[in-house]
Every structure is written in C-alpha cells, then in structure tokens.
Amino acid sequence: MLPTNEQRRWMYRNMLISRYMEERIETIYMEGKKPIFNMANGPIPGEMHLSNGQEPCAVGVCCHLGAEDIVTATHRPHHIAVAKGVDIKKMMAEIFGKKTGLSGGRGGHMHLFDKDVNFACSGIIAQGMGPAVGSALSRKLQQKSGIAIAYIGEGAANQGAFHETLNLASVWKLPVIFIIEDNDWGISVAKSTSTSVAKNSDRAAAYGMPGIFIKDNCPDQIFSATAAAIEQARRGDGPTLIEIKTSRLAGHFMGDAEDYRPKGEKENLLMNDPIPTYRQALLDENVITLEEDSALVQETQQLIEDAITFARDSDEPAPEEALEHVFAH
C-alpha cells in the first residue's frame, strides 16, 4: 500500500515539525551551559536525547494511526510524540519544566504523557512494551477499536521485557505492533557487539509472529511496509515485530562526544539525512511545489517558535506542587 500525496505531505510536515523542534531544543539546551557544561543549568536541564534522523520511523507508522490508538515511546520520544499528535505547546512547556506542560513539569522530556492522544513514554529500556501489550489487551477485552504500538530502540531487544512481552502478545493474539528503531547504537555500544542476530526482526519467529525488516530510513517505505501489519492487528489477527534501519544523527544525549563512532560514520549519516532526501523526492514527483515547500517550512518553524514562546512565557510550577498527583483524586 502506497501513501497518498496527502499522506506524504502529512509525513513530511511532521518530520519538519520534529526536526525544527530538535534543532531549537539543541540550541536552547546549551543556554546557561557554557563555558562549563553542567546538565543542571539552563532553561532545559537534565538529560536530552534528540531524535534527529529517526523521524521517518515516527511518521511512517503514525500516519496509519488515529488519536484512539495507543503509542508508548522511549527515552528518545520527541519525534514519535509529534507524529502521534501530542500537543506541541504543552510538550515544549513540559520539556522546559513549566506549569503549563503536559504534566505540569513533573515528567520532563523522558516522561511525556498525553492522554488525549494516548501517548506515554518511559526512560527505562524496554519498559514501554508491557503497558502497550496491556492496552492492547484492554481494547480486546472491552471490544473497543484501536491498537497499541510500542516503540523501542534496537538495544532494548536484549532486555528481558522484550522477550516476555512478545511471547505474551503472541499467545493472547493481541492488537499490538512492536517497532524497533535500529540506529545501530545503544549509547556507545554497537548493535553488532551486543546482539546475537543481525536483524532483531528474525527474533519474531521465536514468538510465532511475523517479523519485518525495513532497510531504508524512508517514510514511504516505512508506511508501506507497516500497513499490512497494522491492518492485521486491527482485524484481530495478532501482533507483528518490525525493525527499521534508521540513523541517530546526534549523540546519544547532548554532551556526548561520540568518540566511539567509526571515522566517517557521522558525516555519512548526515549526508543521508532523511528529511532533505524526502523533500527532494516530493519535489521531483510534484507532490509539493517549491512555493508550497517554503510555505511549509515557514509554517512549521513558526509553530515551533510559538511553542517555545509559550513555554518560555509560562510560569514555573510552585515548589509545593511537587506533592500533588502522587495518588489519583
């Protein structure tokens, strides 16, 4: 199944939003952190895991989803949150730790929760998978529509939770899809030195479910290759494991010197940045015109600038608000 032109424009637009968000966060994150890089300082403190380069994985899958579908993401969640339709202003405010943020500043960039579009994430490797399986079970038991998608990195496929949840989802034939974003690295450890198989999608066989490997970091290919799996889940015919070869264009987190990368790797990845490549394809195939493209660039940049202004202008939470929402009320 090929994406329509409208879907292609949607994917391109969301990749732009995500990338501008990351580029602006990258700059703002460094405010207050020079000349001495101390994570505690600046308007955005703490760890920061940017998703530059992985946008196709987000849009290619989420293009098939609606707000009712459930997505769990990881410590690197921004691109997926954008594609899932998480409120950009509230998300930015959360990343800034403001009162107007998605969680009033309690979560931060690794813990973005937006109930309106069924989005959540966890900073513990592979721990989004159990909740995704459980949400899928809930939809099945309640006979409600909607499926669950659990995103993980390739490093997470060596975690116990990965193997347990795949088995459970398969045994119970749940409407859930597991998406592995294979960017080759778990911090400084290469996939080839940590993983017993070249393709994690091969591991699907051990759990009696289809495994799909997508070798190109391209929104159209990801869209097409995931369509059938998502249809299968929606039909009630069980889960699929999908691994997408993607690229982490930034360090593991901000401040990472990336000395572990082989010479030339980063340059090579940057040369194959999926966004300019996709833009060119859309232009070449007359899906967008140059004028439309520059309008889109302007519009999406403005969207991010507005979100940043909103976040900066928002109040900080009062310290005592830390005590709220430990339990439900």
Binding site: G97, G108, E316, P317, E321, L323
Partner: peptide, 12 residues
C-alpha cells in the same frame, strides 16, 4: 513522592 523533573519542585 516520585522525583519531579522541574527544577523548582525538585530543588524544593
């Protein structure tokens, strides 16, 4: 309480 992200809450 779980540890909040936002600086004013955490520092407090």
């Amino acid at each position: 309480i779980p540890i909040p992200f936002s600086r004013p809450m955490e520092q407090w």
